[in-house]
Amino acid sequence: MPRRRRTRLVLIFLLPELALILSFVLVPIIGTFIISFKTSHGYGVGNYYSVITERSPDRALVIPENIIKAQPPPWGALVHNIIWVAIHVPVVVFLGLTLAYLLRDVVGSSIVKSIMFLGMVIPMVVGGLLIRFMFDSDLGVIPVFLRELGIKSLAHTWTNYPQTALIALILGSVWLWTGFSLTVYAAALESLPKSYIEAARVDGASDFQIFFKVVFPLVKHATIIVVVMTMLWDLKIFDIVFVSTRGGPGGATNVMALVMYNYFARALDYGKSAATAVILALISLIPGIWFIRRVVRPSAEKR
């Protein structure tokens, strides 16, 4: 009797969740897989082939046609995503941890934290507009400042020029996302017993040694979270690109999610759109599985 009661409770409590997830998440995910293999002449990998070998600059994933004729950018959407991760992740890790560490000695540190965290709270669409604004030749702080310094070549609207558009967006994403990294690291440092740092100090370690040899290894768990979350975010980045450049100029800021959207909404080619989504999902699973394995191991042992 107790067992039956428990089974009923488990079923009743789980049912709404499973029903909703099954119909609006799981089935669509499986559906995307199926559609991605559907071509005009039966099932096959044709969509993947054409998506990967596409050369037009606003849809190419890896080898846009300009790469032979002219200097890149663009390099292709997938490459842009990878560049994004390669720059964004280390910068965000470094900035977040350094700030979290320094903030312990800063007056009004909670205000600084709140300011940094704003980027996490605002809609990414607004974030994208603000990035566009920051790099505007007339209104943006950065071009105006560079003009004052006499660096005329960079005193233009960054998002309008292929050479600077991608880096402008990446810098903007640093601005938006550092708050997350800082917050995670600050929480990790807070839970760290002071005695570790004090012991290192007594043992004669310098500030830099303490930071790199003691603090950094001790917050490894936080670093993994920051790296994984930042990678996931960078790979599926869409809003800020869509609203500030739409992948332009000339495909210079194109990213995977935007290519997927363009196949879907502009070309109305659902097979290719789904194929792009699957590629994006598979790449996302690399950091995703890393994260899942860390989470599941302890929880699987429990009861």
Binding site: L26, T32, I35, L232, A257, T276, A277, A281, F291
Partner: peptide
């Protein structure tokens, strides 16, 4: 957990 790691793009076409 897998769903948490999935991009929204993965659901759009069938939805």
């Amino acid at each position: 957990l897998v769903i948490m790691a999935m991009p929204q793009q993965m659901t759009v076409v069938p939805l």
